[in-house]
Every structure is written in structure tokens, then in C-alpha cells.
Design a protein around this nucleic acid. Structure first.
Lengths: 343, 343
DNA sequence: AACAAAACTTTACACGCGTAAAAGAAATTG
DNA sequence: CAATTTCTTTTACGCGTGTAAAGTTTTGTT
């Protein structure tokens, strides 16, 4: 590697013995130049350390190769994991992923979108905060930038939505719990941030109804994203008060369940299916940690990879077509029952 | 808000009745224009939706207002959390945070730095992968871009390093464990990815030596970032084989401990300090989940906020000074003993 | 009111690359 | 080998902003 510093494409064209427009063509699509030319450029690239100035490139393009990925909360391993998978797919497709977390804050979510607008992304993959989201402004953003929503939907917003079929997933686990023991009560947040939570509640009610059982809702007060804390606090209270009519708790998501399990443990209530167990607890999502809880958590698995792949490919399709979709495309994936120790 | 689309600064200057250079000055520093002028611009900003083109802005600047934040693994809540804190600080200081995770992959880490170089960041906050990192290339990057390392150090690389004092922290917990029960064995990975792990091992050996106890190392085979899995697998093996000479296990980090706790639970060994407990387990880091494990995990807390603040402010200092530090600045923070149920 | 200082306007050039048009060179074809 | 096609070069302009220099207006001070 020569030490000579290459300042710009002009200089790089000079040292590789070609003209600047040819170099430009090469960087936009290496296969668009003659094979021999391509080799000459690649050889020069090995000798000299040059990469086109990203700002100059994108100044002229109407849109860039950037793809925004926005999730509600990066410190939640569930979103961190799905973001990781999406990021990989975006890279493989030759785009530049730009990952942003909203920290559970609707203003931050809008800021993220505003900041994305500044870098003129080719498209955006957005998991909205949910109930708290500023739906109008998100909708306005989606008018400007092709956007695919995932995990949590906003009616009519975005080119497409990819998520989980709550009715199927909750149905599955309610059915399982009823077959193997007492019908479950449903443990959730009083004011869930996530619209999926509402769907899950409805799904629970419907499933119980269908099986001829009386539903029981346990609604924990509390705001924010400290789900484990809320699950723990309310779980402790429930166990202490002891006015449950069932020994089986289905939690709206795994993080609540993790908090609940902790509460049960501290209260000395054994959770599980064997003899001597006082409670059964199940969750929903197959959170990365749910296989290490005590006991391990029975839950409904979201297929991270399927959701990520479908979202990303839908977006790539829209970007390549260069036109918006005729109608909003909605995809629901089935959840999978993961039987572990807790129920 | 008028609907008229503002294309560029020229047009915005026109509608606000000022010249373009004045507008440019305003966007670079609102306080650099007369108060009345500033108000005029701000009023215009409320009427028209204009924001300068980021690519055009940065094309001329030798460096931008971007600050890169690179962590080894975003799906690890520990790093997600510290990244979140740093991100907030960077924003408050008027910079644009660019968050990148290396997915535990040294190539990805280098890619991240390469990509950062393209956006000419004012500085970078980097938590290296550790043992696997391509130290030479990271060093080369740090020559070009002011970089502050945190969490895990690379000798002589970067303007500064901010981390935890392993000897103090491990000393603290070893001391506590020895005072309150049997001296601990040290549970770690055979080939840790993180150099902190080596320091922690040395610190353990030193602390045990000082207290006149015989150290015992338990080294789990396994690679990668699935620490819980490794902790679980090796923990199960240890418990099954039963050739421990102590009932107390100090884990090199909380994630290993989480796996170990799960193994103990499944083996029917009660962990804790009370009567009827077969094992004591302690960790290190105060991982966000360690307060919800069963039992809750006794550990050494890293002061996330202190590490984040010190790293960020050191970097801001270097950026503002415009010159590199005379000598590499190294800061270690003390860990804090967090006594919970497990030991 | 006079004056200096501060702020603004005008003008002009720079940044690094995309891209179009026309002309020239090289590769491919029959 | 000539004709044709494909690729490359030359030339030139545009993108939206930073920024410097020189001239003009406004502001604040005495």
C-alpha cells in the first residue's frame, strides 16, 4: 500500500490511469465497466487507500443507499435481537443500515424520523412505539419515505406491516394451558404502550370464551418500559393478596413474566408443572432470556428471522420498483409454542 | 406552516428576507447573529419546513458534528444500556450520535470503523471487542480520528481509556464472600473474549492470596457471546460432577452467573445465603437483569453513568481543543458491592 | 448627532462527485 | 478487414452549502 494520500476521485483517476467519470461509474456499479478496466481499478484500490466521499456522493443522488431501522427500545433484548437480524439483511442487500432506538420516548421517535429524513434514506423499517406514537407525524413521514412497519402496526400507515398473529399465538398457548391444567388468568399492563398488548388481551378473551372458561384479567398499574419491575411489583402483590381463582398465569409478554417469576420465587411459591408447584406461568415472545429463567419460561416464540426477512424484503421490493405499493400489504406470522419448565 | 416547499438555503433566505450567508451563520451558531435577525429566522422556520441539506453541509467541513459510538454487542443489555446513556450525552452536547454494534465480530468492528471514517466523525467512543479485536487497525483508526476507549482497553491506543478498577471491584466482593462464608471459586470462560476477564482473574487470584486462601479456577470452554448458555452448560456439569471444594462461586460476569443460576435451579440446588442453601453465587457488572434472577444476584455494580459521562466528556474536550492529548489519560472507576439474595 | 463597531449583503469561489453529450478508442462481429 | 457495437475520455455543468473579502447598513456609544 503506497503511502501517498489520495484526496479525491480526480487524484485516484490519475494514479489508476483512467478518467474520473469511469471511476465514478465503477463505484456505482463495478460491473458497468469493462473487465480489464475493472481489474485496473481494483489493483489501484489495493495500492492506494481511497474511498469516495460519502457526502459528495449523496449530495446529487435523490436518494441514497441508506436504510433506517428504528426500534422503540434498543436496551430491550427482543428489539436488539430483531434489529441485529435486520441490520445483517440490509447490509447483505448492499444498503447501509442506520440503526436508531427511540428510548421509549415518542419525541425521540419523531426526532429519529426527522434525522433520517435529513439523510434521504432509500427506505425505513420502523417498529413504532405504539400507543404513545405520534401517529400523524409518522404517517406524514411515511408519505415521504417508503416505510415498512413491523412488530406493531399503525392503521393504514406505511407500505406494509409485518407482525405476529396474536390470535393464533395466544390461542395456541391458552389452549395448551387449559388442556394441561387450570385455565389461565391474563396478566398484563393496565395501560400497555404496545398495541399488540390490546390484541393479545382480545385474543385471550376470545380463546377463553371459545373453550367455555371464564376469563380473568390482572392489570398491573405502571408506565414506561420497565416491564420486569412492573411484573415483579404487581406479581408480589397478587401472590401476597392471594385472591387468584386459578393457579395459572399467562403473561402478556415475557418481560412481565420474568418479573412475575422473580416475585414468585421470592414469595417461596414454586412455579412449574411438577408436583409441589404452586403456580404455572407462561409468557409470550420467546425473549432471549426466557430460556434461563427459573424455571425456564414456557412461551410463544416469535420467528425473529421470518419477521425480519419479510419486512426487509418487502422494503427492498418497494425501493427497487421505485413506486409505492398499490395497497398496504399486511403479513402475520404464526407463533410457535415453546414448552419449557414454567407451565 | 405554509405549504410552499423550500428547496435550499437560497430559497429559505429569500422567504425570510435575509441573505444566504447570514442563514448559514445562523445554522452553524444561532447566537452568532443579531437577536432580531435570529427571531426573524426562527419565525420563518415556523412558517416553512426547511432544514439544511446534511450532505452539502458536511461536504466542506473537514469534520462533522458526528460522533461514533461502537460497542461489541448491542444485543447485550449491558452494552445497550451504556450506549443509551452515552447517546443521550452526545445529543445534549450538540453532536449527532451514530450508534454501531459489532455483533461480536472483529471484522464487523473494523467495518464499523471504516464506515465511520467515511462520515468524517469529530470523534469516536469505542468499546473494543477485546482479545479478538484487530488491534493494529484500531490503532491506525485512532491515529486519524480522536477516539476514547471504554470498558475494555487496548494498550496505548486512543486518546484515553475509561473503565472499571477490576482489582478494587473483585477485591471487594472476594472480601465480602470470604467474610460471610466459604472462600469463592472463580468461574470464568477458558478463553475470554474480553481483556477485562483476564484482569478479573488476576484480581481474584491476588485477593485470595492476600486473604490467605487457596484460589480455585473453573474455566468453561466455549466461544462467542452466548455467555448465559456457556454458564448454564458448564454450571450443570460442575454441579453434576460435584467436585467443588467450596459452596461459593464468583462468576467473572453476571451473564455467566445468570446461566449458572439457571443450572443450579434445574439441578435442584438452592442458591442463597439462608438455611437450606447449597450454593452461593455472585457476579460482576450489575447487569440490568440481575435484580430479577432467582434468587436476585449479588454482584459488583459498574457505574454506567460515570463511565459514560467521563468517556464522553473526555472526547468532547479533545474535540474542542482541536489537539490530541499529550499523554493517554486512563481513568478507573470503583465498583460498588450490590448485596442481593444469591450470596 | 457623530462615530466606531457590529452585523449584514453582495459577490465569488470552493468542495467532491453525479451525470450528460460528444467525440474518440477499443473490442466484437461477420 | 471493415463495420458495428461497446466502452472510455473530454468537457462541462449542477448539487447545496461553507466561507472569505469587500462594501453597506444598522446598532450602540458618547
Amino acid at each position: 500500500m503506497d503511502d501517498q494520500k489520495i484526496k479525491n476521485m480526480e487524484e485516484f483517476a490519475a494514479v489508476s490511469g483512467l478518467s474520473r467519470p469511469t471511476i465514478s461509474k465503477f463505484f456505482n456499479d463495478p460491473s458497468s465497466v469493462r473487465k480489464t478496466t475493472r481489474r485496473r481499478i481494483e489493483e489501484a484500490l489495493e495500492r492506494f487507500d481511497y474511498r469516495p466521499n460519502m457526502y459528495a456522493i449523496n449530495q446529487n443522488r435523490r436518494l441514497t443507499k441508506n436504510i433506517g431501522i428504528v426500534v422503540p427500545y434498543l436496551a430491550d433484548p427482543f428489539f436488539a435481537e430483531i434489529a441485529r437480524v435486520i441490520e445483517t439483511l440490509v447490509l447483505e442487500a448492499g444498503f447501509r443500515p442506520v440503526l436508531l432506538g427511540s428510548h421509549g420516548d415518542p419525541e425521540q421517535e419523531i426526532d429519529n424520523l426527522e434525522n433520517l429524513r435529513l439523510i434521504k434514506p432509500a427506505g425505513v423499517l420502523l417498529a413504532p412505539l405504539g400507543r404513545l406514537s405520534d401517529a400523524d407525524r409518522i404517517a406524514a413521514f411515511c408519505e415521504e419515505v417508503p416505510t415498512v412497519l413491523f412488530d406493531s402496526s399503525i392503521d393504514g400507515v406505511g407500505e406494509a406491516f409485518v407482525g405476529l398473529d396474536s390470535f393464533q399465538g395466544i390461542g395456541l398457548i391458552v389452549d395448551y394451558l387449559c388442556r394441561t391444567g387450570e385455565p389461565p388468568a391474563f396478566f398484563e399492563m393496565e395501560k400497555p404502550t404496545n398495541p399488540n398488548a390490546y390484541k393479545r388481551r382480545s385474543a385471550y378473551l376470545a380463546a377463553m370464551d371459545e373453550l367455555g372458561h371464564t376469563p380473568q384479567l390482572i392489570q398491573a398499574p405502571g408506565e414506561g418500559w420497565e416491564f420486569e419491575e412492573i411484573g415483579f411489583r404487581e406479581g408480589s402483590r397478587i401472590i401476597r393478596d392471594g385472591n387468584l381463582t386459578t393457579d395459572t398465569i399467562l403473561c402478556s409478554n415475557d418481560r412481565l413474566a420474568i418479573g412475575f417469576l422473580s416475585a414468585a420465587y421470592q414469595a417461596g411459591k414454586k412455579v412449574g408443572i411438577g408436583a409441589g408447584c404452586a403456580l404455572r406461568v407462561a409468557g409470550h415472545d420467546d425473549h432471549p432470556f426466557s430460556r434461563y429463567t427459573c424455571p425456564t419460561l414456557t412461551t410463544v416464540a416469535q420467528d425473529y428471522s421470518a419477521i425480519a426477512t419479510k419486512s426487509a424484503e418487502t422494503l427492498f421490493g418497494v425501493i427497487e420498483a421505485g413506486t409505492r405499493l398499490d395497497s398496504r400489504e399486511v403479513t402475520f406470522f404464526d407463533g410457535k409454542l415453546i414448552m419449557r419448565g414454567s407451565a
